[in-house]
């Protein structure tokens, strides 16, 4: 039994670490130590006396850095000279229920709206039902993202074959389109349910810069429009 506990613990440790790294990559305020927590430290903090991990203890929140806020600020418009940044505190929760239905997700949604979190990330052990997933668009502008635990075991952004993705700010996007005299519809596209797009939490209409290694050019940058 303790063997199973320790296996479960190391599994959750990897998931927890990837989640923190994901939030840090998006630009939330997290320290380097937090993102690279060691297994022993994780065991000391999040395991109970029998060595089983406690998911409810793993809940955390993070605030966006000023850089991130700048990135998410839309361009000034005649009516809005100083637009609000479209980002806020993120709340991450881990759920170990064997079945996740409408009620479970509703509870989380209620918590998000009560505490006024801008983004909620729900890491679930089991796949939520199809009708539960339909709740997500009804919550806008609150963003709810659902990740399966098994998808976060490994940090995909660190894989050799995954190029570096960086999100462009609204200003950068405008400059890019002017530089190449493009409309945004003329850019190559990336789906918002692409694994890397989910990792970065891309929203429809944003543009990512993808920097690949190239044998001939050294580095090669391309841009994709999230749809």
């Amino acid at each position: 039994m303790s063997d199973e506990n320790s296996r479960e613990l190391s599994r959750l440790w990897r998931i927890f670490r990837t989640t923190k790294q994901m939030c840090a990559d998006r630009g939330y305020e997290l320290t380097e130590d937090e993102c690279h927590i060691s297994l022993d430290q994780f065991r000391a903090e999040y395991a109970d006396s029998s060595g089983a991990p406690q998911r409810h203890k793993m809940t955390f929140t993070a605030r966006p850095t000023t850089e991130m806020q700048k990135k998410y600020t839309p361009l000034a418009r005649p009516g809005q000279p100083t637009p609000e940044p479209q980002i806020g505190t993120v709340h991450v929760e881990f759920n170990g229920d064997p079945n996740l239905g409408v009620k479970g997700l509703k509870q989380f949604a209620q918590l998000l709206s009560e505490k006024n979190y801008y983004t909620g990330i729900f890491v679930t052990q089991s796949a939520p039902t199809s009708s539960a997933l339909k709740i997500i668009p009804s919550l806008l502008p609150t963003v709810m993202e659902i990740f399966r635990e098994e998808d976060l075991l490994v940090n995909i952004s660190k894989h050799e074959l995954v190029p570096k993705h960086t999100l462009l700010s609204a200003e950068d996007k405008k400059r890019l389109l002017e530089r190449y005299r493009l409309k945004e519809t003329q850019l190559p596209r990336i789906r918002v349910d692409d694994p890397m797009a989910k990792y970065l939490g891309l929203r429809r209409g944003q543009v990512v810069k993808i920097i690949r290694k190239s044998e001939t050019a050294g580095r090669y940058a391309s841009y994709r429009w999230a749809i």
């Binding site: 079945n99 996740l100 239905g101 409408v102 009620k103 479970g104 039902t129 199809s130 009708s131 539960a132």
Partner: peptide, 13 residues
């Protein structure tokens, strides 16, 4: 299919 979804949800409850 919606009724199937309802059955699934009720079972979870």
């Amino acid at each position: 299919s919606d009724l199937d979804a309802l059955v699934e949800e009720r079972n979870i409850e």
